[in-house]
Structure formats: structure tokens, C-alpha cells
């Protein structure tokens, strides 16, 4: 069969909402794009553990401590599911990690911002997880089977994350003056980076059309971003706080909120490595991996000894 025929069969399947499975024929570009997208997502989960793990040891109550550990632990799980799904495309986790550690692979820029106060745990849960969920829910219908299945599991687990975050902010918003200040400050710092999480505007996002055709992206960046802004603009009122955007205003005609211009210079410069924490985050990951090398080796060595013993 010619490549053109195979491509036609492949695209027909996708158009008919038939999932592509690991051993099915797929265009190289599809495979490559998926590996990039899925591993980038996996890396984001793993790097994303760090800013929150940063506050586990300082969580203000035992209940908060437990829920934060459970949440960060879930992120490890999500990274794991996604690495595993990526491995079905023929790239091992070790290789993917290597790409992360050497800076070849990207992760979500949001995690290059610092967590400065306890309220950041709330803002991350509400805004960052909120934006992530907005991105992820449509991917439960992604055309690649293992990816879609991982996303179903992830979305199911994520549902407590955002509620956990909002609850933190809600408690702060009803608290002392210092707590309310903490709450507003965190929203001020996390709002724009969260809005940027949806990526460049559609006209500046060259991969979108192809990815939509392949159904590994189901809505455009701007569509999702608008949905996010609309929802948050309503939710912030429950907190009695404000979003740091003077241009945020309901547009009766569009039936959406208008919002201010995004600082794309900041977006691109954080991606290029100039965010406040790029270096720290990557170093922490590399350190954990390198310092874990002897542990992984020892476990393997012991397993080999045991299997030799059993064989003899």
C-alpha cells in the first residue's frame, strides 16, 4: 500500500472518531507531534510538583498538609500515566527525561514562577489547575488511544485539585486583613501567567490547524482562553477579590468578557529560560534524577541477583 493510501486510511479513521492505537500505522509527523505534546505535558506535571511541594512542609494545618501531599502525589501519577502513554510510541521514559534535563524538551512555563506565600497554593489550584483542566478535558477525546485514556484518568483525579485550591482562597478571603491581602496578591501574580498557559494567539500558533485535523487538539488556544476568562471572571466575585485586568469587562454583544492585551514578550522570554525559576526547577529535577541513579541501579542489581538465584 502506498503512503498516500495509508495516510488516507489513517485520516478517515480519525474523521470517523476511531481511535489510533499503538501498533496502527501512523504518519511520522503524527507520532513526532504526539511524543512532543505528550512528553511536554508529562514534564509539566513533574516540574509542576516542585512549586507546590515547596509548601508541603509549611502547610498551615494538618488537613491542608495532607491534601497538598495528596495533590502533589497525584501530579507524579499524572506524569507517570503520560510518560507511560508516550512510551507506547516507542520512546522510553529515560530518553524523555534526558530531553527534559538537557533543556531539549519544554514544559509549561507557568511552573517557572515562584510560590511566595501560602495563598499561592490556592491560586495554583484555582487558576493553574483550572486552565489545565480546560485544556485537558477535550483531550479525553484525543485521537490517540493511550493518550485519551491517560487523560480520562487524569481529569477524573484533577477534579479535587481545583476545588482544593479554591477552598484555600475562599478561607483566606474570609480571614484576617493579612490573609485577604495574601489572597489578592496571589491572584495578581498568577492571573496573567495562567491566561498565557493557553499558548500564543491562534494567528501565531502554526501547529494548530494540523493538530486539530489529527484531533490531538480539539479547540483553539483562543477559544479555550476565552472560556477560561469567562468562568474565572464569575468565580472571582465569590472570593470578593479582583482579577488584575482593568480592561476586563462583559461584552453584551459577544456574550463574553473582553480582556486586556497579553504581554507576549514576557511569555516568550520565560519560555526561553528567563523566568524567575527556570534554573531552579530544572536543577531540582536533574538533582533528584542523578541522586536517584544509585538507587535505581541497586534495585536492578538486586532483581538480577534474585532471578539468577531462582534460575540456579
Amino acid at each position: 500500500m502506498s503512503v498516500q493510501d495509508l495516510e488516507k486510511i489513517f485520516q478517515d479513521k480519525i474523521d470517523a472518531d476511531i481511535r489510533i492505537e499503538p501498533k496502527d500505522w501512523m504518519p511520522d509527523a503524527y507520532r513526532k507531534t504526539l511524543v512532543r505534546q505528550m512528553s511536554q505535558h508529562a514534564h509539566s506535571e513533574i516540574v509542576g510538583m516542585l512549586p507546590e511541594a515547596n509548601w508541603i512542609t509549611r502547610a498551615p494545618t494538618l488537613r491542608r498538609k495532607a491534601t497538598l501531599i495528596a495533590k502533589v502525589q497525584d501530579e507524579a501519577g499524572h506524569g507517570l500515566y503520560l510518560y507511560a502513554a508516550t512510551e507506547t510510541l516507542g520512546t522510553g521514559r529515560e530518553e524523555l527525561l534526558d530531553q527534559l534535563h538537557t533543556g531539549k524538551a519544554k514544559y509549561s512555563s507557568i511552573f517557572n514562577y515562584p510560590t511566595l506565600t501560602w495563598a499561592d497554593m490556592g491560586a495554583i489550584g484555582w487558576l493553574v489547575d483550572g486552565a489545565a483542566i480546560m485544556n485537558q478535558v477535550p483531550l479525553c477525546r484525543a485521537s490517540y488511544g493511550p493518550y485519551a485514556r491517560a487523560m480520562v484518568r487524569i481529569c477524573k483525579e484533577e477534579s479535587f485539585h481545583q476545588r482544593q485550591g479554591f477552598e484555600i482562597l475562599l478561607t483566606l478571603s474570609k480571614g484576617s486583613e493579612a490573609q485577604r491581602r495574601m489572597c489578592q496578591d496571589a491572584i495578581d501574580r498568577w492571573w496573567w501567567p495562567s491566561v498565557m498557559m493557553f499558548g500564543p494567539n491562534d494567528d501565531a500558533s502554526p501547529h494548530t490547524a494540523q493538530s486539530m485535523q489529527w484531533k490531538i487538539k480539539r479547540f483553539s488556544n483562543d477559544e479555550l482562553r476565552q472560556r477560561f476568562v469567562d468562568i474565572c471572571a464569575g468565580q472571582v466575585k465569590i472570593l470578593g477579590m479582583t482579577l488584575p485586568d482593568p480592561d476586563l469587562v462583559w461584552n453584551e454583544h459577544r456574550q463574553h468578557y473582553d480582556f486586556g492585551a497579553i504581554n507576549w514578550d514576557e511569555f516568550w522570554s520565560v519560555i526561553k529560560g528567563n523566568g524567575p525559576c527556570n534554573k531552579d526547577r530544572l536543577e531540582a529535577r536533574v538533582k533528584a534524577h542523578e541522586e536517584g541513579a544509585w538507587v535505581r541501579e541497586a534495585a536492578l542489581a538486586h532483581a538480577e541477583k534474585m532471578s539468577r538465584k531462582r534460575a540456579s
Binding site: 507511560a84 485514556r149 535505581r296 532483581a303
Partner: peptide, 29 residues
């Protein structure tokens, strides 16, 4: 070289049901 092998995981969600494939993970043994 030092990568732990990959394992496929099957879970029985409750007595009476089949084990169902849920995903995979790495482990030394």
C-alpha cells in the same frame, strides 16, 4: 541501561469482575 523494565498493570476493581488493563509503570521486579 539502568532503566527499570516496563510492566502492564491489570486491576480487578471488585470481586466478581475481570482484571482490566489500566496502564503501565516501571519496576525492578
Amino acid at each position: 541501561e539502568n532503566q527499570w523494565p516496563l510492566w502492564e498493570i491489570f486491576i480487578r476493581s471488585k470481586q466478581g469482575l475481570d482484571h482490566k488493563h489500566v496502564g503501565s509503570l516501571h519496576a525492578a521486579d
